[in-house]
């Protein structure tokens, strides 16, 4: 258990991590027609899926201390995202019949320039079907997604643990972990939609130019989660001291 004030800071940090993680997870709605690089769904939806898996995985080790909770959340989330990427690529390879290729990199508009995959060095130009902005998740976007999921899962687990340790003194029933879970999910959902405004529904992760507008997400999520954290802190202090009850 941690001190309520530290827990408040943990909620703020968790909220910011959740917001920033969305920038790293490659996602695009037109990916469902194999018309753009990225996992075929909205960025905020996908990060919600990954983050909530992280909270689910973190819940198993809630009694084993903060560090384990955070790491379990992070790797649980990364597992979900990488399995999704693998299966999305299987679908693309054997269902659609096309290799994964990054559209932004192929047209030389990626963060680091050039038309090659940064990690594997594979040439991207010429592999995309004409008229599309790439398809599937090439290795560099998969790695970027993995990083994003690690952050998102860690952020979700941070909020979860912080809310748990703040509400435990106030209400001592066995279901307090459920309350912490739903509040953590709520904080996650609030913060994961804000970056979607910045991304306009499509990103290729950290190799997309949109990563440069991350400071806007950072500030927005910082302010929003600070307000949420202060409210949770105030309410829990009131409930513990039984001013009103």
């Amino acid at each position: 258990m941690v001190d309520p004030l530290i827990a408040t800071i943990m909620i703020i940090a968790g909220g910011v991590l959740v917001g920033v993680c969305v920038h790293f997870i490659p996602a695009s709605a037109t990916g469902a027609m194999a018309a753009a690089t990225g996992i075929a769904t909205g960025p905020s939806m996908l990060s919600a899926g990954a983050g909530l898996t992280g909270i689910y995985a973190a819940a198993y080790s809630i009694d084993s201390g903060l560090a384990l909770v955070i790491v379990s959340g992070a790797v649980g989330s990364a597992l979900m995202l990488l399995i999704t990427i693998l299966c999305g690529n299987i679908m693309l390879a054997f269902g659609i019949g096309a290799p994964p290729v990054s559209g932004q990199t192929a047209s030389g508009k990626s963060t680091f320039g050039g038309t090659k995959d940064i990690i594997t060095g594979f040439e991207q130009e010429g592999y995309a079907s004409p008229g599309t902005d790439g398809h599937g998740m090439p290795f560099q976007t998969a790695v970027s997604g993995g990083f994003g999921a690690l952050m998102g899962g860690a952020g979700g687990a941070l909020v979860f643990y912080a809310v748990y340790s703040m509400t435990l003194p106030a209400i001592s029933t066995e279901n307090v972990v459920t309350l912490a879970g739903i509040v953590a999910a709520g904080v996650f959902l609030i913060n994961s939609v804000l970056p979607a405004y910045v991304l306009v529904g499509k990103t290729e992760g950290m190799f997309d130019m949109k990563i440069r507008s991350m400071h806007r997400t950072f500030i927005s999520c910082l302010v929003t989660s600070s307000i949420v954290a202060c409210v949770i802190y105030a309410v829990c202090e009131l409930a513990v001291s039984e001013v009103i009850v």
């Binding site: 909205g42 919600a48 106030a170 739903i182 609030i190 309410v235």
Partner: peptide
């Protein structure tokens, strides 16, 4: 930039989380 679904669940997350937290005290 985001789907209408995201707006819905984001807005409800704000509202519902506020109500859940407030129900504590």
């Amino acid at each position: 930039g985001t789907g209408n679904a995201s707006i819905g669940y984001w807005g409800t997350a704000v509202g519902a989380t506020s109500a859940f937290i407030a129900s504590l005290c």
